[in-house]
Amino acid sequence: MIKQILGTALIAVLGIILVMNMLNMNKESSTNEYDVTGDTEAEGVAIGPPGSSGLEVGELSPDFELKTLEGETIRLSDLLGKKIMLNFWATWCPPCLKEMPEMQEFYDEHGDEIEILAVNVTGSEKNEQAVHDFIDEYSYTFPILLDTAMNVSDEYKAITIPTTYFIGTDGTIQHPRKAGPMTYEFMEEMLEELN
């Protein structure tokens, strides 16, 4: 009888230890966060492996050609001579959603002074229709480009989204990339500093 009680107690203790270990493993896996940007101030969502801080100031912006939501083709090199804000984003990215209303306000106020190209990392979306539905729901009017193969996102090393580059009239990157959501004030400051 004592052996049965000790055996049952031992099984109960082992069961409790097993449950505690499983709970601890779940807790650890749900709270681990890794900064892949190298920027301790960055807010965003990682969509790729670490290894780069993005394109450098002074580098020529890699040319690309992407379709817009409306089916038009935009080639970056066709915009040479204009100031450009190149933003990488996704519908499932909370920091991206946080900055988009301010991007719309900025576009409404300064759209004649700077080209805003919002490149959706479409290859990471549920489907392309999700992008259309999102833009329609919030009535954003700045150009939305679809990076379905994610080649442009890769070339610009947009491993954290949102990521934004500011390109000058000479086609070069003129400021360090901005990883994380932008404010209206930040966008105005960048516009004033672009040439």
Rank of each mutant, 00 (worst) to 15 (best):
M1D: 11
I2Q: 06
I2G: 06
Q4Y: 04
Q4M: 03
I5T: 11
I5Q: 11
L6S: 12
T8G: 15
T8Q: 12
T8L: 15
A9G: 05
A12D: 04
L14C: 08
L14A: 14
G15R: 05
I17D: 00
N21M: 13
L23A: 12
N24S: 10
N26E: 11
S29D: 12
S30E: 15
T31V: 11
N32Q: 15
E33M: 03
Y34M: 13
V36H: 12
E41T: 15
G44Q: 00
V45E: 08
V45H: 01
V45C: 05
A46F: 10
A46N: 08
I47M: 10
P49S: 13
S52V: 06
V57I: 12
G58F: 06
G58R: 05
G58D: 08
L60M: 04
S61Y: 00
K67C: 01
T68Q: 05
T68P: 12
T68H: 12
E72C: 02
R75F: 04
R75A: 13
L76P: 07
S77W: 02
D78I: 11
D78F: 03
G81N: 02
G81L: 10
K83G: 13
I84S: 09
I84L: 07
L86D: 08
L86E: 06
L86N: 05
L86R: 11
L86P: 09
L86F: 08
N87A: 10
N87S: 14
F88P: 13
W89A: 08
W92F: 14
C93P: 07
P94A: 10
P95N: 12
L97H: 07
K98P: 00
E102M: 10
Y107V: 07
Y107E: 09
G111Q: 08
D112E: 15
E113Y: 02
I114Q: 03
L117Q: 08
V119E: 02
V119G: 00
N120P: 12
K126F: 06
E128N: 15
E128R: 07
E128V: 13
E128G: 15
Q129V: 01
H132A: 01
D133I: 00
D136C: 01
Y138Q: 03
T141C: 02
P143F: 02
P143I: 06
P143M: 00
P143Q: 09
I144K: 01
T148E: 14
M150Y: 02
V152N: 03
S153Q: 12
K157I: 10
K157N: 13
K157R: 14
A158N: 11
A158I: 07
A158G: 13
I159C: 02
P162N: 06
Y165G: 01
F166K: 04
I167E: 09
T169I: 09
T169K: 13
T169E: 12
G171Y: 08
G171W: 04
H175S: 11
P176A: 00
K178H: 11
K178W: 03
G180T: 06
E185S: 09
E185L: 01
E185G: 10
E185A: 10
E185M: 01
E189D: 09
E189T: 03
E189K: 09
E192N: 14
E193M: 09
N195T: 07
N195K: 05
